[in-house]
Write a protein that binds this DNA or RNA. Structure first.
Length: 840
RNA sequence: GGGCCCGUAGCUCAGUUGGUUAGAGCGCCUGCUUGACACGCAGGAGGUCACAGAUUCGAGUUCUGUCGGGCCCACCA
């Protein structure tokens, strides 16, 4: 068979990518899927935002998922990877707004309907691009099940979930202080606010006390909010409390008197001991205002400008107002001091604008009742994290969960299914658009203009994509899904909410396992960002090195949860690996394939033993999401063992049929990590199968221990001889491999014997039982093994003592004792092995 | 303030219940244009596993503390 000297992935990858899609190779039909008793593996993709194109983080995540999915599929499960995209409310709206701005337009110029149409156009363009990228990367999704969070079906799910929660009293509407982004013109949830330390000032302002000479000094980081102060608090234990309590202060720059209240929020010893209270512009003060029944005066509006209540500062931007107010206080001699102060600026997660806390009427979701069963699901192991440590982060957040502000004042998203009656002001929440007010029967109804937080619809993703709220065959077949693969940054945003929604709506967890992966960074471990200019574009790097090489490079450096330092060097090494496999194939394909396909020669038996070891490790690694281990193992199996050893030993042999057998299995072993090259080569083998992706994943077979021992010794001895020869300890005219083959079996033994004699610590006996039977004895360090055994016996005795102690057993959880028993079994196995080696 | 993670070869990182001589890729050195592959082959140098204790027959691996670095959460003006 003709085969090119250098592997050029670009020539083959697009073809197979297209073929996999065209053949619907990864489509699972409902009828088949619903087959009872058939184990399944299902996974809903973390839907990429339709804001642009995919980045390396997606490529990494998809490589992990695809490896797992392909492995599961080859292991014989009904396998579904459901693809899709997310409408990504604010993020997408911002992108479209920016584009409009380039045309000199704002969304208001278009109006809501036309604007939404523009976003849909954007979605078609970028959503399509993302899907094309994924298809080209060869991910094994079921493309017939592609979903988008704003699809009619998913929108129906959103309404259903909203109405159910509303009817249960878990969704409510309330006036409360929220994070307001003046640029995005919307409320944000706590999670959408980022805190960033910045250098600011602490201004100490004198508030004159009425009817007293005491000068009360108040410290603040935001002087512009003072115009909205409605009280000053001092600690009840403050020595001045008795004197000042029930007195009032004259709020500077205004003609208002505000009370002095006692509240522990004023920490003794901090600053001047007095705190201004601005219920309209600070979450803390909002609560304090409620405690003391204080009025709330809004002095900053939705555009971050001062309101009419700010008097002569009205209309100024909040930061301009700050300067003006500070200047005026200084002029009045009311600024006692200004000190530098580090503070946490709250910024909008999407646009980086400094958030303004404002009181407004929003829709909220009660989280405590939903969090409780979700905590339990992780506690009792119905959901497990990989790596397990992340469960602590999850618990931490869930225990302290606060109500979720779910309404957004955006135009792009799911309109909240609530209608306001123009006559009686009643709010009607319904699955279907109501024709009349539920209370007064008026037809004067207007739908709520707010949309839902984008994470509301994402939270329903694992079941809304399978047809919920209908009880579809898909849901029966694939829910709960098996696994969620995602980054740590969205555990709260998404994973936690899916768990809560899943348990609430479906009565069961949305997935069994959560694999949290790390970040893809650049070669210097810096985060990739457009501003730093260190972004590696998957399209570019895939074209340069081949998708297989990039996937493999990502996975081989991906310890569970670990970040990846991505360098072209690394990927280049994996490209060389693909080329190595290619060239091994060239050699193999130049040999005749006829023969019985049995492992006859020493080399055959050795590679069979090595293959089993690799298969065992690979299967275990996939099972435990240890992709780097699978990749590392297969890399060394292919390169060091299959190519460097096996093929070299095989060259002078005539019967290559077993080489074809092991080669075909080795391709299957590698397929989940390098789908393209393995498909290409496997197709060339013409096995009669449709695709390697549908072939069985090799499992380790029980190996004759004696054979394995012999083969390992064989390898060890040859290595030793090679090293001795390289060090000129062996004077030999020919190379060892030449001898091994040229002289036949006797030469093999002669070579081994020679090497063994030179090693001086091994004895070799030739037997007549089989032409290739070796009997080797390696002297062992008896003293060391005996000492180790003593220790092992001691440990076993210790464990035994505990495991038979009634008191201990009654207290210790099953988990602990099971672990101890396992440990004991391990020690006993080791002990038995040592004893066997010692001849006991 | 609370929580999590990291510190192993020049660089980037593996090292799953503690167990023979601590590994890989890249880089470096030596020798090879060996009929699959120079994107290759054979060999080599390089590590007090941050530091100090503790547990153990045995610690890179477990525990405590110190130092150094990173991340997340949090309403302290």
């Amino acid at each position: 068979m003709e085969i090119e000297k250098v592997y050029e992935p670009q020539r083959f990858e697009p073809h197979w990518a297209q073929w996999w899609v065209d053949q619907k190779l990864f489509h699972v039909s409902v009828e088949n899927a619903a087959e009872p008793g058939q184990p399944y593996f299902s996974l809903a993709i973390p839907p990429p935002n339709v804001t642009g194109s995919l980045h390396m983080g997606h490529m990494f995540e998809h490589s992990i998922i695809d490896a797992q999915i392909r492995w599961q599929r080859m292991c014989g499960k009904k396998t579904l990877w459901l693809p899709g995209t997310d409408h990504a409310g604010i993020a997408t709206q911002i992108m479209v707004e920016r584009k409009l701005a380039e045309e000199g337009l704002s969304k208001f110029d278009l109006g809501r309907e036309a604007f939404e149409a523009r976003v849909w156009e954007w979605k078609e363009q970028y959503g399509g691009r993302i899907v094309e990228q994924m298809k080209r990367a060869g991910v094994s999704c079921d493309w017939d099940r592609e979903r988008f969070t704003l699809d009619p079906g998913l929108s129906r799910a959103v309404r259903e979930a909203f109405v159910r929660l509303y009817e249960k009293g878990l969704i409510y509407r309330a006036n409360y202080i929220v994070n307001w982004c003046p640029r995005c013109q919307t409320a944000l949830s706590d999670l959408e606010v980022e805190h960033e330390e910045s250098q600011g000032h602490l201004w100490h302002i004198v508030y004159p006390v009425n009817g007293s000479d005491t000068k009360l000094v108040v410290a603040t980081t935001r002087p512009e909010t003072m115009l909205g102060d409605t009280a000053v608090a001092i600690n009840p234990l403050d020595p001045r409390a008795a004197e000042l309590h029930l007195k009032s202060v004259r709020l500077p720059l205004t003609d208002r008197d505000i009370p002095i209240v006692l509240d522990e929020m004023a920490e003794l010893g901090f600053g001047s001991g007095a705190v201004k209270i601005t219920p309209a512009h600070d979450p803390n003060d909002f609560e304090a205002g409620r405690r003391h029944d204080l009025p709330s005066i809004q002095v900053i509006d939705e555009n971050a400008r001062m309101t009419a209540a700010a008097g002569k500062f009205a209309g100024l931007d909040r930061f301009e107002a700050r300067k003006a107010i500070v200047a005026e206080l200084e002029a009045l001699g009311l600024m006692e001091k200004i000190e530098p102060y580090k503070l946490n600026a709250a910024r909008c997660h999407r646009c980086r604008t400094i958030v303004e806390p404002l009181v407004s009427k929003q829709w909220w979701m009660s989280m405590k009742p939903l969090a409780e069963p979700a905590i339990k699901a992780v506690e009792d192991g119905r959901i497990t994290f990989v790596p397990a440590n992340w469960s602590k982060t999850y618990f931490e957040w869930m225990y302290n969960i606060r109500d979720w502000c779910i309404s957004r004042q955006l135009w792009w998203g799911h309109r909240i299914p609530a209608w306001h009656c123009g006559d009686c002001k009643e709010v009607t929440v319904a699955r279907e658009t109501p024709s009349a007010c539920a209370k007064c029967g008026s037809v004067n109804l207007v739908q709520e203009t707010d949309v839902l937080d984008t994470w509301f619809s994402s939270g329903l993703w694992p079941f809304s994509t399978l047809g919920w709220p209908d009880n579809t065959l898909d849901l029966q077949a694939f829910y709960p899904t098996s696994l969620l693969v995602t980054g740590f940054d969205i555990i709260f945003f998404w994973a936690a909410r899916m768990i809560m929604f899943g348990i609430e709506m479906m009565g069961d967890v949305p997935f069994r396992q959560i694999h949290i992966h790390g970040l893809v960074r650049d070669a210097d471990r810096q985060k990739m960002s457009k501003t730093k200019g260190n972004v590696i574009d998957p399209l570019v790097i895939n074209e340069k090195f081949g998708t297989d090489a990039v996937r493999f490079g990502l996975l081989v450096s991906a310890a569970p949860g670990g970040d990846i330092a991505l360098s072209e060097e690394r990927i280049d090494a994996e490209k060389a690996f693909a080329n190595k496999i290619w060239n091994a194939s060239r050699l193999l394909f130049s040999k005749p394939r006829d023969g019985a396909g049995a492992a006859v020669s020493m080399a055959d038996r050795w590679i069979a033993s090595r293959f089993n070891a690799a298969a065992e490790t690979a299967n275990r690694a996939f099972e435990h999401h240890r992709y780097h281990e699978a990749a590392d193992t297969l890399y060394h199996f292919w390169w060091d063992e299959f190519c460097d050893w096996y093929l070299e030993l095989k060259k002078p042999e005539t019967d290559w049929s077993y080489a074809y057998v092991i080669y075909e299995k080795a391709l299957r072993l590698l397929h989940p990590l390098m789908p393209f090259i393995t498909e290409e080569l496997w197709q060339r083998l013409e096995t009669g199968g449709k695709s390697i992706a549908l072939a069985a994943y090799p499992q380790a077979e029980a190996c004759d221990a004696q054979v394995e021992r012999e083969m390992n010794l064989f390898q060890g001895v040859v290595t030793q001889i090679r090293q001795d020869r390289a060090a000129n300890k062996i004077d030999r005219g020919q190379s060892l491999t030449a001898e091994l083959h040229a002289g036949g079996e006797h030469a093999v033994f002669a070579a081994l014997k020679d090497g063994i004699e030179r090693m001086g610590n091994v004895t070799l006996t030739l037997t007549d039982a089989s032409p290739f039977a070796l009997k080797l004895n390696i002297p062992i360090d008896r003293a060391r093994l005996e000492k180790e055994n003593e220790g092992l016996e001691k440990q076993i005795a210790n464990l035994d003592r505990q495991l038979t102690d009634e008191k201990f057993l009654s207290k210790a959880p099953e988990k602990i004792t099971a672990g101890m028993r396992e440990k004991k079994a391990g020690y006993e196995a080791q002990l038995a092995k040592n004893r066997a080696a010692l001849g006991l």
